[in-house]
Design a protein around this nucleic acid. Structure first.
Length: 326
DNA sequence: AAGCGGAGCAACCGCACAATG
DNA sequence: TCATTGTGCGGTTGCTCCGCT
């Protein structure tokens, strides 16, 4: 693709990001947002490609990231979602506020896979090894997580496949049941607005008018009542569904989110760049921002939100942040 | 103390898709 | 309709750390 030569031509930096680079990027995004990643490096004065900036922001600098070890509940959720979604890390990540797809992918590849194997479960099929021998391929958990449009005969058949696979898996939930449970309020299997159309949406073919990124959005709603009950009930978990109810249009009210969930000194959150900034960069947990990448209205809203969240941090912690070292 | 190997993690690569001209 | 550009995603690589010998 000529990417290498492009990098050489532009003398772009690669490899680990320095604190100075992080600072530049963070400042730039706080000030201008990121309407176009390709222009960010130039505007921010970075010798990086836009892609690298985007990745750095998403996986590391974003203020709503939750760092540190995954809890057992989070691991369980990942396993359950993987049984249904396969390697669609971004969709799985959408269900875990503050976690990135990269983080989850790494966790899966390094820890969870191993654990499952040790317990006699094939991480690809989520079935006991003894049961797999001689059985048909598992459509859901095949190596490549990306689902091509051409593979989608229809949303309904895919949905059925997913459901079949999930229900066949030991101990894992049935999508239809979940959606049915969700339907006690607004959705039903037969009228799930997310699944009516198979237009050009990636993955599971969603109704574009609803513009939520994926089926994950549906499970956000569903899982909020099922998965998260055992989790921290005063943070993200209890809000996922309200986000849905709010009609996919409401960004978190930062004034009410304020103080809702910060990284507390007692938390075992690992702080790297923030440590560089004297170790006191406390970021609010803003689950909707990460978990619900709205498409409609999107970039401006997202940028605006990023700016707001950063500003909020800045306001709350003025003694620390203005002291960015240069 | 040095070497080795595995684990964990950050970042890169290549591809697919969407948007735009 | 086609080409180009931008973005997002999943797979993979390579570096660092740490425990073991």
């Amino acid at each position: 693709m000529g990417k290498q030569s492009y990098l050489h031509k532009q003398k772009l930096r690669r490899g680990l990001w320095s604190p100075e680079e992080d600072e530049k990027l963070l400042k730039h995004i706080a000030e201008y947002g990121h309407t176009s990643w390709s222009s960010v490096p130039k505007l921010a004065g970075l010798q990086r490609c836009g892609k690298s900036c985007r990745l750095r922001w998403i996986n590391y600098l974003r203020p709503d990231l939750k760092r540190g070890k995954f809890s057992q509940e989070e691991e369980d959720i990942i396993i359950e979602l993987h049984a249904v979604l396969g390697n669609r890390w971004s969709q799985i990540a959408a269900q875990l506020p503050g976690r990135t797809d990269n983080e989850i992918k790494n966790l899966w590849n390094t820890c969870i896979k191993k654990k499952l194997r040790q317990t006699g479960i094939d991480p690809n099929t989520h079935k006991p090894f003894s049961e797999i021998e001689g059985t048909e391929d598992d459509k859901i958990s095949s190596g490549s997580g990306r689902l091509k449009q051409t593979e989608l005969e229809s949303d309904l058949t895919l949905m059925q496949d997913i459901e079949d696979s999930a229900t066949k898996s030991i101990g894992y939930f049935s999508l239809s049941k979940l959606i049915c449970s969700a339907s006690t309020t607004t959705l039903s299997v037969s009228s799930n607005p997310l699944l009516l159309h198979n237009q050009n949406n990636r993955g599971l073919g969603l109704n574009p008018e609803l513009s939520c990124s994926s089926i994950a959005s549906a499970t956000t709603f569903v899982s909020s009542s099922i998965f998260y009950n055992s989790m921290d009930s005063n943070s993200s978990s209890s809000k996922s569904s309200s986000f849905w109810y709010d009609g996919l249009s409401s960004w978190p009210d930062l004034t009410t989110e304020r103080g809702n969930k910060y990284l507390l000194p007692g938390d075992s959150e690992e702080m790297k760049w923030p440590q560089y900034l004297q170790g006191n960069f406390l970021a609010p947990s803003l689950p909707h921002y990460q978990s619900q990448p709205l498409h409609a209205g999107d970039l401006q809203v997202e940028s605006h939100f990023a700016l707001e969240s950063l500003n909020l941090c800045f306001q709350n912690h003025q003694p620390e942040l203005p002291q960015l070292q240069s």
